[in-house]
């Protein structure tokens, strides 16, 4: 379990890093936290000729409050995201999701942007990025572009990133302070990748009906998903047994999860319905409470 031979370079600036990528292209790999890349290299599933270590580039280890949005720098570690008080109050659904991302030691090094670049189909962060209108800042030596998360995440472990490009940061929208949220995940052991996970934010109107729901899921498809079909189904409704039953049915009809050794597709479809029901209820209860406070 030793990696194949590689060269190692440690640029001091983003420009240097981009120059290196321009020079080596597909032979090079960025290393951020290394928590996904190193296992793959040790298994010799990937054999980059050059590792470009961005860990000493100043200015990337940041989480910036931009008012309407939050910007996660390329080296924002999972631990920073999990403990950031602004995120806890302004994007509580992300805060809750972070409890399910790996374990302490992995969180100390793993990065928000690295997780999105890795695009594991059962990871939590890509789902949150999709759900909260994430914009991925992509740079190469010759151009800069910003991709919506839905365009960036292409498939299982596949993104729209070109060989000479790196992600310099990702922005996501802050949640409406009036909205309720919930995050439900089930995995075989705490900290494992999700068998299924559901994130929900929603508001309620004066009649107690659901408004502006956003629903993300992970672990049940080729990529993380924003569930616009379910959002449409529950928008304007009151969450009762019938409605949640319809949600389950919709998921059952539309999801095509994998079967792997941890769970079959049938179970994952069932689990999705259960977790979606729990998350919608919990988010709704929170939204009602917030609305109640506002009405007082």
């Amino acid at each position: 379990m030793k990696p194949a031979r590689f060269d190692y370079v440690r640029p001091d600036s983003v420009d240097q890093a981009l120059d290196l990528l321009a020079r080596y292209g597909g032979d090079a790999k960025i290393i951020a936290g290394g928590q996904s890349l190193m296992p793959m290299m040790n298994f010799r599933l990937v054999k980059p000729a050059v590792l470009v270590d961005i860990n000493r580039i100043p200015g990337l280890e940041v989480i910036e409050d931009q008012g309407e949005r939050v910007r996660m720098g390329a080296l924002a570690r999972h631990r920073m995201t999990a403990t950031d008080s602004m995120i806890a109050s302004r994007i509580p659904v992300l805060h809750d999701a972070m409890h399910h991302v790996a374990h302490m030691t992995v969180r100390n090094r793993g990065t928000f942007c690295g997780s999105v670049c890795h695009a594991d189909p059962a990871a939590e962060i890509p789902m949150i990025v999709l759900m909260l209108d994430g914009q991925v800042e992509v740079a190469s030596a010759s151009r800069r572009r910003v991709l919506p998360a839905a365009e960036f995440l292409v498939g299982s472990l596949v993104t729209a990133l070109e060989a000479d490009e790196m992600v310099t940061g990702i922005t996501i929208g802050m949640s409406d302070p009036q909205s309720g949220w919930a995050f439900e995940e089930f995995s075989r052991r705490h900290g494992d990748f999700a068998l299924a996970a559901v994130a929900v934010t929603l508001g309620v109107d004066a009649d107690g009906a659901i408004r502006n729901p956003r629903i993300g899921m992970t672990g049940v498809g080729e990529t993380a998903m924003r569930m616009r079909g379910v959002e449409a189904l529950i928008d304007g409704c009151h969450p009762d047994e019938d409605m949640l039953g319809e949600v389950s049915e919709w998921l059952n009809d539309n999801l095509v999860p994998n079967t792997d050794i941890h769970a079959g597709a049938d179970y994952r479809r069932h689990l999705s319905g259960v977790l979606a029901g729990r998350a919608i209820r919990a988010a709704y209860a929170r939204a009602r409470t917030l609305r109640g406070k506002q009405d007082e």
């Binding site: 298994f43 075989r188 052991r189 705490h190 900290g191 494992d192 990748f193 050794i261 941890h262």
Partner: peptide, 28 residues
């Protein structure tokens, strides 16, 4: 609850790493 070595019909072991052969951890 967790551990299982599984060989598929081709005789391959499919729980080949500790990501798939699940050992109990403190929270279990």
């Amino acid at each position: 609850l967790l551990e299982e070595v599984i060989h598929d019909g081709e005789g391959q072991s499919v729980a080949a790493s500790l990501a798939d052969y699940l050992l109990p951890v403190a929270t279990d």
